[in-house]
Amino acid sequence: MSPGLNDRRGTWRVKAGLAEMLKGGVIMDVVTAEQAKIAEDAGAVAVMALERVPADIRREGGVARMSDPGLITAIIDAVTIPVMAKCRIGHFVEAQILESLGVDYIDESEVLTPADEEHHINKHAFKIPFVCGCRDLGEALRRIAEGAAMIRTKGEAGTGNVVEAVRHMRAVTGAIRKLHGAGPEELVMEAKRIGAPSDLLEETARLGRLPVVNFAAGGIATPADGALMMQLGCDGIFVGSGIFKAENPSARAKAIVAATTYFDRPDILADASKSLGKAMRGLEIGAIPEEELLAGRGW
């Protein structure tokens, strides 16, 4: 509405800035407009619109692709909070379609079947921002170099098991802590060792954190899981299958939202965790055949 002549759209500050606004919040996977409304009612800061939650993608197998644009539009129309959607790794045309639909953030996601086994999308070419998954600092900085304005841990989506998200968050924060006090020549060698651009590694060392917002994702199923990830140093939480695969999605969603805000208050967490009904069943990582693990997708 009535734009100014010299307004600058799609700038880095505007892209990374939306992620700053989501901090301390919970982004929830939804597969219908109804679920999107439940998520918004529960206090979600954004929803991820998709056809199947990761637990179902895992169970059904086959090639997982971008969701039906009709479904994404229905979800956009149903809520007032930002709407995200996933495209396949390297599938820049799916990303172009999502941008044209007006989604607010694109997740170039390992939960879908990769479309390119060598290249991720050049995310600088888009006006809307991208979030990408990572398992360690090098992977996070490679995605930022390609234009990701927000990072999340990969975890192991659709398992309801937080162990991989913890591993990935500790890998990132631990690697950042080790940069403290390193000289310029040591940073160059570390950048080479982890496969990260040295300018971004230098910036990370200077800030003592990633240059963009970093959420936790992949296996979060309870309020305590969310608070655990916040105490480990993430900026907010993605919950995929953990809400709508649980017995009482609305109560669980509200509880995880409260737990993300009051992550350092065990008394409030205890209250929020009461009488939520059964959590999603969950999978042990060791019981999943290696070729079915999602976190290894992307590089």
Binding site: G4, D7, R9, T11, V14, L18, E99
Partner: peptide, 24 residues
């Protein structure tokens, strides 16, 4: 989000023009 933008905004309150980031 696609319509979010940066602009210069002028005000006597800050003694001139300053950067402003408008996000949704």
């Amino acid at each position: 989000q696609i319509d979010s933008f940066e602009a210069e905004v002028e005000s006597a309150a800050i003694g001139g023009a300053g950067p402003a980031v408008f996000i949704r």
